[in-house]
Write a protein that binds this DNA or RNA. Structure first.
Lengths: 221, 221
DNA sequence: ACAAAAGTGTTCCTCATACACCCATGT
DNA sequence: ACATGGGTGTATGAGGAACACTTTTGT
């Protein structure tokens, strides 16, 4: 039997970070048609003999130089989603600590971190993909220790709480959050070190724990 | 820019139902190479100008004659997953009440419902896809009213509890489950009718409620 | 009367929330 | 001393687990 080879396959990345207390996504300004000059999610074609996840890892490295947590969001394949023809895209989610400004890749004219609220008008169906990615990130914080992926290797409980507050867009009680984070096994591991206090009492520093899921979960208000 | 058209795209279906108190998946025996004679998930190529979900709905109709709940599981695209060449498949999950034996489609020699435990040796990477689909179904029962998708239009609380017990593989307390199901808003709606009791007191009949999510969720033990 | 399944009430425990309070630092 | 943020203790309430108990049918 002969296979129909009628599709192009791409990966698109929803890369999230926290800058200036806002949840930001990595976007690129397209340097080629279609949607030339529009902002879009970073991404690109899957190479021959390359797995989907490998393509996502490669693209993430090209755009940010960073290897972080990557997870599939969903796949989008509406027949008219790309004016060039039939393109099916597999979207991946990445979370990372605040990075220096990403360097623009060859096929884009610019790249920047942009707050995910007050966003719209992205190329293709990327508004929808970004929204799905953000919702996935919000949900993952509830039952995994993934919030630490937004933090540097060592962080305080207040740093971690900031992540939740920014991603969820709602304030949390610092006292209850502290108890919850430190008492849930595998969420955070104490390093024994503490910050030099700049304002107030110095805080203990923690590393990310090794739990895959949080028991019990930390639910949105 | 010219697009690389190097991929075939398929949809594969994890269609689950409950028969004889076991969680069963719809499988087909392949009538053509590769994997001729092996059991596999039903599925097929996405047509030109067809959306992915539309392809899944079409395949489900062809295999079962039924339109049910459909939801994307994930996408699988390892370079060697199909010996014929580069095939990327988007997997969908469907849940449905017990059906009469499905009719075999033209390109398969047989079709059957098979219990998902004690399964293995499926064609391609379908063991993995099936496992992911089953895990998704187990998780969805926790926070959505989707268990009713396994039941006929009208069902008793005991029927619904059976669904949970079979899918999760663990016993639940009938009294607590009853209270929980009937008190969670939007989970089930009373019809006013009741079963003719065959053994014991007749049970009230319910319809599926209209809630999208369960508040609070019904967690696995 | 008895078995069997439906459905209710009650107790105990875990955990989320709210908030009073103490601790450790800089100014 | 005071402001600022880190961290602990404790009361209250919602909901889960366990299980005694009542209800309604068939045999």
């Amino acid at each position: 039997m002969e296979l129909p080879h009628a599709y192009a396959v791409t990966v698109d990345l929803v890369v999230l970070t926290i800058r200036d207390n806002r949840l930001c996504a990595l976007l690129v300004e397209r340097g080629l048609p279609p949607y030339r000059g529009n902002w879009a999610l970073p991404g690109g074609f899957v190479l021959p003999d390359e797995d989907l996840m490998a393509a996502a890892i490669r693209e993430l490295g090209e755009e940010t130089g960073i290897t972080g947590h990557l997870e599939q969001i969903a796949t989008y394949g509406a027949p008219d989603r790309d004016p060039r023809g039939r393109v099916v895209t597999v979207a991946y989610l990445a979370l990372m600590p605040d990075q220096p400004m990403p360097t623009a890749a060859s096929d884009v004219s610019n790249a920047d971190w942009r707050p995910v609220d007050s966003l719209g008008g992205l190329a293709f169906d990327h508004d929808r993909i970004l929204a799905d990615g953000v919702e996935r990130a919000r949900a993952k914080l509830e039952y995994t220790p993934l919030a630490a992926a937004f933090c540097p290797p060592e962080f305080t409980i207040a740093d971690l709480r900031q992540v939740y507050e920014v991603v969820w867009g709602s304030a949390l009680d610092p006292r209850n959050f502290h108890r919850k984070a430190t008492s849930t096994v595998g969420f955070v591991e104490p390093t024994g070190r503490a910050t030099d206090g700049q304002r107030g009492r110095p805080a203990q520093l923690f590393r990310r724990g090794d739990a895959a899921v949080l028991h019990p979960p930390l639910l949105r208000p």
